[in-house]
Design a protein around this nucleic acid. Structure first.
Lengths: 192, 192
DNA sequence: GTCCTTTGTCAACGTTTGTTGACTTTCAGG
DNA sequence: CCTGAAAGTCAACAAACGTTGACAAAGGAC
């Protein structure tokens, strides 16, 4: 039973790399099996099928290393993780996973549910107050939008910026998201 | 030759409805043919294949009705179209199209190229100035992020808001996107 | 060594998918 | 009416997909 766990882990790891990069419906199981150096049949055997493998890959994808247990501000921590390094951090992978799989008809609902449980709810609890939900949702929207535009769509003016400038852009957007006041209703300053 | 154009149009229309809603790789050609009331074989005959049909559906998807020809501010116009009605506007469909297909390995590059040509470049030309690219990219990022969070992910705190509140949220985020100053580099106000 | 559980291998199945080619129907021009 | 191009129908293909079941190898218990 020890050996089987190793194969399970190799499959989950390969599944993450593939699903996060190309999206659920664009990844054949044979690709994952080949990358893991394992026979395809073992996927259905161990995880019950493709969807089961995705659930296993999704499980733990939101277990951030000490983000909500410390006394630090999770918003600032997340922002810092996204701004600073070019190296693929833990949070970066989660965002790529969301962008690639949250709109899929098959596994989208799973992703959204896990997201709500492991990310949005804790962030709301940290912020507290009446309009916490609005600010948290805007925070996530800004983060996803910026990541999609820079990494996913490679937009000119965002993807070609040095990380210092991108950090300033992201902070500017996130500040707006967190400073939104629900009670104020409609505020001054139209478009442009 | 007149009749064939009608069938072509019916196919393109059905293709848009399906591709925009479920994404390129999740739509079988037979679904589109059935929705259009047409035989599947005609797709390969008329458009050369699935990718050709998508290109035909993509073509014209960015031809906004009088957005860049008038003297009005396109940023404000787009923002207004997204804030006000519950009815599915033209711009809304484009955003849904982007969110569902821009990350696809097959047609993603096509979508991004068309997006750059028909949306980002005109917006940059309108804004002008040195850092126009940065602001335009942030504008689009904010718009896509908010739409993804509200319509796509149904985030609590954004999807359950009345349209008046959502309009204020969107305007708040977009204002930040357009007010970003590239030259200022790093500015004051960290996370939270 | 023998047994039995665990683990991995292999071939095949039934579907679905995009695409193709041969055939039939439609219909305007002579 | 006759003809031929245009438009549509139908069956079938090959490939790819997820999944299954029968079988072989491995490895510890006794």
């Amino acid at each position: 039973m020890r050996k089987a766990d190793q194969t399970r882990d190799k499959l989950v790891e390969a599944a993450r790399a593939a699903f996060w990069a190309r999206g659920y419906s664009n990844v054949p199981l044979r690709d994952i099996a080949r990358a893991a150096g394992v026979d395809v049949a073992l996927i259905s055997r161990y995880f019950g099928g493709k969807q089961g493998l995705f659930e296993a890959a999704l499980n733990g994808a939101f277990d951030w290393p000490d983000l909500f247990d410390g006394t630090e501000d999770p918003f600032g921590t997340i922002l810092a993780k996204f701004s600073n390094p070019a190296k693929e951090g833990f949070e970066r992978q989660v965002v790529r996973m969301i962008l690639m799989n949250a709109t899929d008809p098959d596994v989208g609902p799973l992703v959204r549910a896990e997201m709500e449980r492991k990310l949005l709810a804790p962030l709301r609890a940290r912020l507290g107050g009446e309009g916490a939900a609005a600010n948290v949702a805007l925070f996530v929207a800004a983060l996803l939008g910026a990541s999609l535009a820079r990494q996913g769509l490679q937009l000119h003016g965002l993807a070609d910026q040095p990380s210092a400038v991108y950090a300033a852009q992201l902070r500017h957007l996130v500040d707006a998201a967190l400073s939104f006041d629900v009670a104020a209703g409609t505020q001054a300053g139209a478009g442009r």
